[in-house]
């Protein structure tokens, strides 16, 4: 704990050269003796404004890693610093509160942030129009489609006004066309807001479509296996030839990684 604090102070002194820094992070679950190592010695920097995709098969501890960065769980070893404060987190499920309208869901986040009452409504409206749901303020969650719910969830995450947005397979449950649209939305909002994004997915094309950097995690335990810089200019399309080519390369690597688990 003290270790984390001193390094946080040191980071802010050098005016945050990163949005998140994971320094030799390991995570094990279970009692000593029957311990299961889930993440092994992960070292990763997310630069301010950078879009990083974490890619891996099941069992690579992607969600555990995001929970650690979000501060919902503590690493067993190593340290994690997020100089921009508590990161915003978006889940695969929209996780909107069904007893509140779309607008009030966002306002609750603003309220928890300490924003005065009279500023909340205009800010919620602004965030809803940012995700192009200007008319949805009074809509109940069950009145929205799956894609609209994820857009409200994105607006709610943005309401935290964090420098770092963590996304845990947020579009995995959506149909392909809706997912395409949301990729566009996310790319647009990312470039408008200067956010850093750490995006977890098992979908290689999605990772290549979105990220500036794709980090491949191995499974059981999760280790950083390889990294690719994606220098295809945005806006990209998921069906672009360049996206497809890199996806093929990364998929090969991912398959090799999965095969390795069947061999012993």
């Amino acid at each position: 704990m003290a270790d984390t604090l001193t390094s946080a102070a040191a980071q802010s002194a050098e005016s945050a050269a990163h949005a998140a820094r994971l320094d030799h992070v390991s995570k094990a679950f279970g009692r000593p003796g029957g311990r299961q190592l889930v993440l092994d010695d992960i070292t990763l920097d997310v630069r301010p404004g950078e879009f990083v995709c974490l890619l891996g098969a099941s069992g690579c501890g992607k969600s555990t890693l995001l929970n650690l960065v979000a501060g919902l769980d503590e690493p067993t070893a190593g340290s994690i610093t997020t100089p921009g404060g508590r990161p915003a987190l978006m889940f695969q499920e929209h996780a909107l509160f069904p007893w509140l309208t779309a607008g009030k869901n966002i306002e609750l986040t603003l309220r928890m942030r300490g924003m005065p009452r009279e500023q909340r409504r205009p800010e919620a409206e602004r965030l809803l129009s940012l995700v192009r749901l200007g008319g949805a303020y009074g809509k109940r969650v069950h009145e929205l489609s799956g894609g609209m719910r994820q857009r409200v969830a994105l607006a709610r995450a943005l309401a935290q006004d964090s420098q770092l947005l963590l996304m845990d397979e947020p579009f995995a449950a959506l149909d392909a066309i809706t997912r395409d649209v949301l990729h566009d939305e996310l790319t647009r909002i990312w470039s408008e807001t200067q956010l850093s994004v750490l995006f977890v997915t098992h979908n290689v094309r999605e990772a290549v479509r979105l990220a500036q950097r794709v980090v491949l995690l191995s499974s059981r335990p999760g280790r950083i296996n390889r990294e690719w810089a994606v220098d295809i200019p945005q806006p990209r399309r998921i069906e672009d030839a360049a996206v497809a080519d890199l996806s093929v390369e990364i998929t090969e690597e991912l398959r090799g990684e999965i095969r390795r688990h069947g061999q012993h």
């Binding site: 929205l144 489609s145 609209m148 066309i177 566009d184 945005q234 806006p235």
Partner: peptide, 28 residues
């Protein structure tokens, strides 16, 4: 998106009209 061709391509394939259509179709 300083690559002019990319911008042009983006406009051609822009999905935001699609988004409005999806919203209209999916609205409960």
């Amino acid at each position: 998106a300083d690559d002019a061709a990319a911008v042009e391509r983006h406009k051609r394939h822009d999905l935001s009209g699609l988004e409005a259509g999806l919203d209209a179709l999916d609205a409960v």
